[in-house]
């Protein structure tokens, strides 16, 4: 059995309300709430980045179950906001873990690099190359001030340790789908990404998630009603409901794993953190389907069954996702600009 051995998430304490962003840019305060289903987004503190979020998420995973560094054979970190353009985040994670005999690399695939990391580790464990591996999705995503992404681009991350002993959630199947779709991109040296506006919906998010979810259920021989929970990539508070309904899922399957209305889009942290929110409440034998989406574009899907081992697992040893969502300090737009280093440089 190969699957999740432990998991942990981290969401920065600071939040900005979408109504405050609307006030700044002359939109109606209810516009982001009604139009996008977004009420607030998480903001990294001045001294936080994708690497510090990754370390905090991983430490929360280790608080629940400690896996010694010398047993960890792989570290993959998915992000589109790695602190360095050249110098891996994964090597910093290796140092924190004391995991020196490890395959380590950084991944980037817009919002699906975290699930790509999970697939890589899953494959290496399944192949018998390693006993345990770490997969992290983490981001401090960038949105150009005044752009639609200003309402959603947020910060957070989740770490999974995948192995074959004492598995709390078995990964039964995983499939992926990819096409060359330019819905969202950032050129080298550019500070903020560009996107195709409405083009990011139908040919990008919906096409890839629906294709991948259908492929996965075909391979697993399952139907939407076989699942207790479904987690989708959550760029806003509306797309997951819309794609879920088109696939035949019900609101009660979607809602428990949907946190973007309260913390925004954590990009590579998105689907992994939605899954983490579900694992915080899941019981043995619950079945979960998780489908990520990364612009550019592709999706990774997972069919997961929670095992009896969850009963012995110390979930309370680390904060749950909702503990961190509720632990919020609200800031104004000017403080947000300062924390995100968007004020013209002062020395």
């Amino acid at each position: 059995m190969v699957g999740i051995v432990t998991y942990g998430s981290y969401i920065p304490i600071y939040r900005i309300k979408t109504a405050e962003i609307a006030r700044m840019w002359g939109d109606k305060p209810e516009h982001p709430e009604k139009g996008l289903g977004l009420f607030a987004k998480s903001v990294p503190a001045y001294d936080e980045d994708a690497a510090t979020i990754a370390v905090e998420a991983l430490r929360n995973a280790l608080r629940r179950k400690n896996i010694p560094g010398d047993k960890i054979g792989a570290i993959f970190v998915g992000s589109e906001s790695h602190p360095y353009a050249v110098k891996p985040t994964a090597s910093l994670i290796a140092e924190v873990l004391g995991a020196y005999r490890a395959h380590a690399a950084d991944l980037e695939f817009a919002c699906k690099a975290g699930t790509a990391a999970m697939q890589n580790v899953y494959a290496m464990v399944k192949a018998g190359m390693i006993d345990y591996g770490v997969a992290i999705g983490t981001d401090t995503s960038q949105g150009q001030p005044g752009d639609a992404l200003d309402y959603s681009a947020s910060a957070g991350g989740t770490a999974y340790i995948i192995g074959k002993d004492e598995v709390i959630a078995e990964i039964n199947h995983t499939v992926s789908f990819v096409t060359d779709t330019p819905d969202f991109w950032r050129r080298e040296g550019q500070r903020y990404p560009s996107h195709g506006g409405r083009f990011t919906g139908e040919p990008a998010y919906f096409k890839h998630i629906m294709s991948t979810a259908k492929m996965l259920m075909e391979e697993a021989g399952t139907k939407p009603e076989d699942y207790d929970y479904v987690v989708f990539h959550q760029p806003n508070g509306k797309f997951p409901y819309r794609v879920g309904k088109r696939l035949g899922f019900k609101e009660e399957q979607i809602k428990p794993g949907l946190i973007s209305p309260y913390i925004g889009n954590t990009y590579s942290g998105g689907t992994p953190t939605g899954l983490s929110t579900v694992l915080d409440i899941a019981k043995p034998e619950d079945r979960i389907i998780a489908v990520s989406f990364g612009s550019g574009a592709g999706s990774d899907a997972f069919d997961i069954t929670v095992t009896d081992e969850m009963e012995n697992f110390n979930r309370d040893a680390a904060p749950k996702v909702w503990d961190m969502i509720n632990r919020a300090k609200y800031i104004d737009y000017a403080t947000y600009l300062k924390f995100r280093r968007m004020i013209v440089e002062v020395d």
Partner: peptide
């Protein structure tokens, strides 16, 4: 775990 200091814009980030 946080960023402690940065060696300018091009230098290393100290965690």
């Amino acid at each position: 775990f946080r960023r402690i200091a940065e060696d300018g814009k091009a230098g290393i980030i100290q965690y």
